[in-house]
Structure formats: structure tokens, C-alpha cells
Nucleic acid binder design. Structure first.
Lengths: 344, 344
DNA sequence: AAAACGTTAGAAATCGCTTTCCCGTTGCGT
DNA sequence: ACGCAACGGGAAAGCGATTTCTAACGTTTT
């Protein structure tokens, strides 16, 4: 008959009794400590198997001061970008025996701060994707969250690697691409106003405008999802632009869908570009021209940086910058105006 | 100057010293126990704030015997279906103050068993999506995982709710829809061979075939992702079918993309249907006819069922069955053969 | 005024495990 | 045969919280 400890689950004490040894010895055996007599070790192992004993991770965590768990805070689990980061992170961490605790802040910046703190306390480290948090807030809480890895944000605090995608460069590459196709009137369908990565794109566009004074670049208000793009059709048409830089692939897809409903041809009438190169981008019709971000790899890298911090290894490359790669597909083509110029 | 406990973090002891009271009193105050003198309580709170004290969740979990965390095991985080379940679950659980620990089994059935056990021990309950596990394995481990909620699987063990989508009915509805459009040669582009939900679809198709002996239904090998659909073009064309039931939306999208590359028109030449109604389904070109599964809601329901179990409430509705809703869009149309029949 | 009672806060046990400390054994060398 | 080192394993002290038990205090009742 199986004894039961107070909580009703089988604990180290049950195994100790069954094997006729002390708790300490059971612990040693379970942790592969070779200072235990092989015969006793075997007896303990047999008892453990028979009782189906598995050490309680909570007790273990308390004693060891580590949880073998890392946390990740994301602003929106519905966003493919964060899903990909999560996937890469989870996969990489799992290979080292770590689990991932997720916290979805639902785009609420005040939640980001609280969730980050809570998640961190339960874990050995944290990956923070907090695009809405102000720089001041970030600067304030970041040190207390260490070991910490930031995604698309930077901080002055030491020992906090940042993995940032160069959205500014990416959007410049896309704009450049459209200009080469003959577009002279571009529009940027912006992301959420307070988004950090949106800010990076805007800066990139400023640089672009400075380098191409002859190109007209309009700024349109937007968001980060399908519906934003779909609803932006009117504003886009009204802008008179022939090349549209959407905040991301989702917005671009929504926009293309809306344009299609109006009977407009992409890229015949209007060229559309996205950003991120989510898996669906190459399956849209027309396939989406976008800037590819190795986002799953970024999640994986986040783990490697975090692991180095947890293990207190020297981190030779604290953080890194990812260059998006221009991915030209069918949604971008020669400008209509350019054509008529040729013919006229 | 801030005192530090052995681990370097601020603990209950530091607050106790600073406030000049015992650990016990600090604990009482932090937990809103009103048997503490208001003056002392205020002093403790002040000390806690000044030291930025936050209770260590691990110690708390050990004492309380609960972690306020639930686990979810998914076969593939890259699959939009599981992403949606995770999202619904996470969102619902968060509202009740619970966090979610994820475990990705990478479609490896042996991992499913191990991960489920590990995840469960760290959590107060588990949501299990384990389509590859055999019935025998499931039956064996399920009881030890309680509180447990199953997705798309059932077990004979008591107190284990199952949330299952009626894939059988859904696929019948889709087939029915194609037949009404005049299709007489259908093909089912199957999912992973050992997938539980694939099995349910096959059963549904058997029922369909029995009810429609005049309709030719071919079975084609497949998988569950884009590439599967894309690579299946040859097999699909060879089958001579004019109506294709893809395993899910991903496969359908891959297939449509492949057909498009061959210069075939959907639905002009071939009708294609998906399954799940993932967010992208209505943005494909043509928009995808599919069977809509309220999948995020399913994740939410999973939490409600699990919560009831954790709280040991009477669960009046142990598990439930979700009926997919036929979502007719542009990817399905009149059969070519039917047209020629009309004209001939 | 003494006894009985309720309230408040501290001491100590508890949760399940790891690990240090220490003592009893054994094996070896002299 | 004796002493010392090495070794194995048990007792106990944490880890950081909660919670029961208990002692002290102030108040009310007889």
C-alpha cells in the first residue's frame, strides 16, 4: 500500500521509508551523486520507480534557488511576430531543459510593467517585448528584472542585451525598392502611435526623405492588424500614392484585400509592401513584397543571450542588430505613373 | 542601506526587521489579514514599499501548495490552431490571476507524455493537446495529470473534461456543400496519419460516403502544413477530383498556391475547402471556404473547465462538443463537370 | 477585585527538497 | 595492532513563505 504525505502526493519521505534510508540519501541518488553505495542507490531507485516518485519541482526550486523556467512578456499573442519569437525561444530553451512562462500584456503598457515583474519573480530570467512602455519606465524597471533580454528596445543599464531589428533600414530598403520601380508618391501606413518599432520606421523614413527629396512620402495613421489595413483603403486612395509601405504584413494583407474589393489591381494600380515576412506572406495573392526578419531565430538568440546571463558566462556579444532582408515578390511592380510617362 | 538575505534578494525577513515585527506579522499584512493592528500594518506596509518587497512566489507556492500557474501541452506552436487555443487559454486564465506555462512537444508523441508530466508537476492543472499519443497511453497517464482538460481527445477516466471539435460533422458539411455545387468527384487531402482529429475526419467521410454512394471520394496522403498542400498538387490533379477537402486551412492555402502556379483557377477549375477558419482564411485569394471552429473560445472554455476542477466546484458541463460552422467563401464554386453536363 | 474572555503578535512547525556538517566505518599503512 | 584518511550516510539546517499554536495583554463580567 502506498503511503501518502500530507499533501496526498508521494514525496521524498515516502521513498526514504520504503528504501529504509534517509531523505538525504534519496536526494543524493535522485541527483546522481556517486558518493552513495551502489546497492543502496539501486534500492532507492527501485523504491522510487515502484512509488512512481517524481521530485516536487517547487520544493526543488526553493532549495536550489532556481526554477528552470524563463518568462516572456509579449504585447499580443495574436500577432504572428510574437508567436514566432515565442516559438523560437521555447524551442531553444527546451533544448537546455528550460520551460517558458508566457505573459500577454494585451498592448496595455501599464500591464507590461506589472507582468514583467511578476513573471520575473517566478523565473530565472526574462525576455521582454514591451513596445508600449516608455523609455523612462523601461529604464527604471529593467535593472530589477535581470537576467533580462530586451527585444526591439534598448536600455542604458549594463548587462542587458538587446536584440533589435533594424526597422529603419528595412523600411528604407522597401522605399528604395519602390522608387526604383518608378514610384514617386509613397505612403506609409503607420503602426500604433506609441509603438517603439513604429518609431524606428519613422526615423528610417526621415532618413529616406532626406536622401530623396523628389519623392513624396505621406504619413497615414494606422495600426498593426488586418482590419487596420482593410479600413485604410480610403485614406490610401485619397493620398494618391502608388506605393504603399504598410506597417507590417498583416496590415498589408488587409489593405490588399480591401483594394481587391474595390476592384483595384495590385501591383498594377498600386504597389503594396509589408514588413516581417510572416509565413503567410508568400501565399497571399499577389505574393507580398516585404522585408524579411529572421524572427524565429531572434527568439532562439534571445535564449542564448539569456542563458549566458543565467550561467554568468562572459557574453562576448551582448545583444545584436538584425538587418531585414528585402524580399521582392509580386505585390510590388512598376508605377502606373511611370508607365504613362514612358508611353506619353 | 538595504539588508540582503542569503540569496541577495529582499525577503520577508528583511521587511520584518525593518518594521520591527515578526515574519508572521509581515505575512499577515501582505495577505490582507485584518487581525493585525492598523498601526503595525501601516508600518509593515511602509517597510515593504520602501524595500520594494515582493513575496517570493516559490516560497509561497510551497507553503500554499499551489502555483497559480497552469500548463498547456501543444504538439506544434507553429500551428495557428494551437496558437489560438493558447491565446484563448492565456487570456482567460490571466483574468483569474493564473499564468500559463507552455510545453511544445514538436509532434513527437513520446515527448507528449513526458512533457505533460513535467508540466503538470509545476502547475495546478493542465490542458493537454496530444493528438499523437495513443489511446492506451492517454488512458494510462491521464488520471495522474488531474486536474486535466483534454482537447480533441477523450478518456474513460472520471473528472477529465474533454473539449472536442466535431471534425467529422464539419467535414461532412463541407463535402455536402461541394456536392450541392455539383461536384461528384471529391478528394480528401488527409492530415498526419496518426492524428486524432484526422481520424475523426475520416470517420465523418465514411458516414458521408455511406449517405452519398454516387459520389466518388478519394483519399490522398498529406500532412498539416502549407508545404504539404503545395506538394500535393500533382496527386490532386491526378485524382481527377474537382472538389478538394483539405485537412485544414494551411494545407488548403498551400494547395491553392500550388494550383495557381500551374495556371489553374480556383474555384473555376477546382474547388478547395479548408478547415479551422484561421484568421488568414478570409484574406486568401480567393477567400477560403472552410469550417469555422471557435478555437479561441475553446481555449477560454478549457480554462473555465480547468478552473472548476481546481476549485473543486461541481462541474455541471464536464466537457463539450463544438460544432464547426460552414463558412462559404469564394474558393468553392460550381463543378466544372456539372457545367459541361449542362451545356452538353 | 478576581476570574473569564477575546484579541494580538511572536515562536515554531510546516511545505518538499538540497546540502552542509559530522560521526561512525572501513581500509590502508606502519 | 594501532592510527589516520577516506568514505558513506544520517541528522539537521536552510530555502521563503504560511499557518497553527501559544503567550501576553487588555477588557469585560461576576
Amino acid at each position: 500500500m502506498v503511503r501518502r504525505s500530507a499533501t496526498g502526493r508521494i514525496g521524498i519521505a515516502d521513498v526514504a521509508v520504503k528504501a529504509g534510508v534517509s531523505h538525504a540519501t534519496v536526494s543524493r541518488v535522485m541527483n546522481g551523486n556517486f558518493t552513495v553505495d551502489p546497492d543502496i542507490a539501486a534500492r532507492v531507485r527501485a523504491a522510487a520507480v515502484e512509488l512512481k516518485y517524481q521530485p516536487n519541482p517547487v520544493g526543488r526550486s526553493l532549495a536550489l534557488g532556481k526554477t528552470d523556467t524563463i518568462g516572456i512578456v509579449v504585447p499580443d499573442l495574436a500577432n504572428p511576430t510574437f508567436q514566432a519569437i515565442l516559438r523560437g525561444l521555447s524551442r531553444a530553451a527546451a533544448q537546455d531543459g528550460y520551460r517558458v512562462l508566457i505573459a500577454d500584456s494585451f498592448e496595455v503598457s501599464s500591464e507590461e510593467t506589472i507582468l514583467a515583474g511578476e513573471a520575473r519573480r517566478r523565473c530565472d530570467g526574462l525576455v521582454l517585448c514591451a513596445p508600449r512602455m516608455t523609455d523612462a519606465e523601461l529604464e527604471e524597471i529593467a535593472p530589477s528584472l535581470r537576467p533580462l533580454v530586451l527585444i526591439n528596445r534598448t536600455t542604458a543599464a549594463a548587462d542587458i542585451p538587446s536584440l533589435v531589428v533594424d526597422y529603419g533600414q528595412g523600411v528604407q530598403d522597401l522605399a528604395e525598392h519602390l522608387v526604383e520601380l518608378g514610384h514617386t508618391r509613397l505612403a506609409f501606413l503607420a503602426g500604433p502611435p506609441r509603438s517603439a518599432s513604429n518609431g524606428m520606421r519613422l526615423k528610417g523614413l526621415e532618413a529616406f526623405k532626406a536622401a530623396h527629396p523628389q519623392v513624396d512620402v505621406r504619413m497615414l495613421e494606422g495600426g498593426s492588424d488586418f482590419d487596420t489595413g482593410h479600413e485604410a483603403v480610403d485614406a490610401v486612395l485619397q493620398s494618391g500614392a502608388t506605393g504603399i509601405l504598410a506597417f507590417n504584413d498583416l496590415v498589408a494583407m488587409g489593405l490588399m484585400s480591401g483594394l481587391h474589393e474595390r476592384g483595384l489591381d495590385v501591383p498594377g494600380d498600386i504597389s503594396v509592401t509589408g514588413f516581417d515576412d510572416i509565413p503567410f506572406a508568400k501565399y497571399t495573392t499577389p505574393a507580398l513584397t516585404t522585408a524579411a526578419v529572421p524572427i524565429t531565430e531572434l527568439g532562439e538568440q534571445a535564449w542564448h543571450q539569456l542563458r549566458a546571463l543565467i550561467r554568468k558566462e562572459d557574453n562576448d556579444a551582448p545583444g545584436s542588430r538584425y538587418q531585414p532582408r528585402l524580399q521582392v515578390r509580386a505585390s510590388s511592380g512598376p508605377a502606373k505613373a511611370a508607365r504613362s510617362t514612358v508611353h506619353g
